[in-house]
Design a protein around this nucleic acid. Structure first.
Lengths: 148, 148
DNA sequence: TCGCATTATCTAGAAATAGAGATAATTTAC
DNA sequence: GTAAATTATCTCTATTTCTAGATAATGCGA
């Protein structure tokens, strides 16, 4: 019986993330991609063309890692870079036709794998978990910004 | 409004973990340690001498990474390896006096930082989140084993 | 308007992590 | 009791990720 509830929350959060993330990793590996490569394709697929910094915020890695992953995708002909007309610091990213075909093909089976990964929790409790995790995540992110 | 609740759960889980983990990383960096190094010290501090495989299960990295981290801690004189008498495959790990002094000193302020990191969620909802994340994590881990 | 802080991206190099597989010991099934 | 499967650890190598900082463009306040 752990008396320190906040610390216990951190432990079970890390364990739950690890277990679910292993499903994600295993699913994505099937398609010959890394998880952040998949993340880039997926966000461009669902949101359309975006600047690098927007993609970075969504795939949760540092900017230099984003450059690294995008480089690989560009070399494989799945993503292209395009200069931003209005902000010349910015580089916009978009799927190539080949990239679009790939993510269209692999997203559905991956989504299915992730649905199975979290299916131990009944739908009603999934919704509850979403609400709590959202609040937890936003709160922690807010504190990070404040404490810099 | 995302209609696909399971996928949304995976997204908020990843975001919450990322935000809280950044607090953890920042806190641990203060003390000149990496997060998995800290994890090894912490588990040995709270559980006492353990075989490498037990430590590995708790710090959530692969076996080769565990060897790498333990090597570093041994070189710094914070942890020692000892052969297991009864199972000669096994290597047991324990804190050295210096390791114990270090973790005794740095664990309390780190724990405090982690309490602040999750404090956006009121205690009652923290307990609720623990229950849900436990079930989610255990379920996902079970499915991983089954699907091998 | 000018200077300063901020933002966006990238580079270089170091560190962390994973993957495949070797070795050796133990356990299991027959 | 023995062969096969499993478990524990480690090695070697490749990949991923981060840190620090450079560069350049933008926004902001005096």
């Amino acid at each position: 019986m752990p008396r320190d509830v906040p610390l216990h929350l951190w432990v079970v959060l890390a364990r739950a993330f690890d277990a679910v993330e292993r499903h994600s990793r295993a699913s994505i590996t099937r398609f010959g991609l890394g998880t952040t490569e998949f993340g880039v394709l997926e966000v461009l697929y669902h949101k359309g063309e975006l600047p690098v910094c927007e993609v970075q915020r969504r795939i949760l890695v540092e900017s230099s890692s984003t450059t690294y992953v995008v480089d690989k995708l560009v070399k494989r002909g799945l993503v292209r870079r395009r200069p931003d007309e209005t902000d010349r610091r910015s580089v916009r990213l978009d799927l190539t036709p080949a990239g679009r075909r790939l993510i269209q093909r692999i997203f559905p089976p991956h989504a299915q794998a992730m649905r199975r990964a979290v299916a131990a929790l009944p739908p009603r409790e999934q919704a509850q978990a979403i609400r709590l995790l959202r609040e937890l995540g936003l709160g922690a992110a807010r504190r990070l910004k404040e404490e810099i």
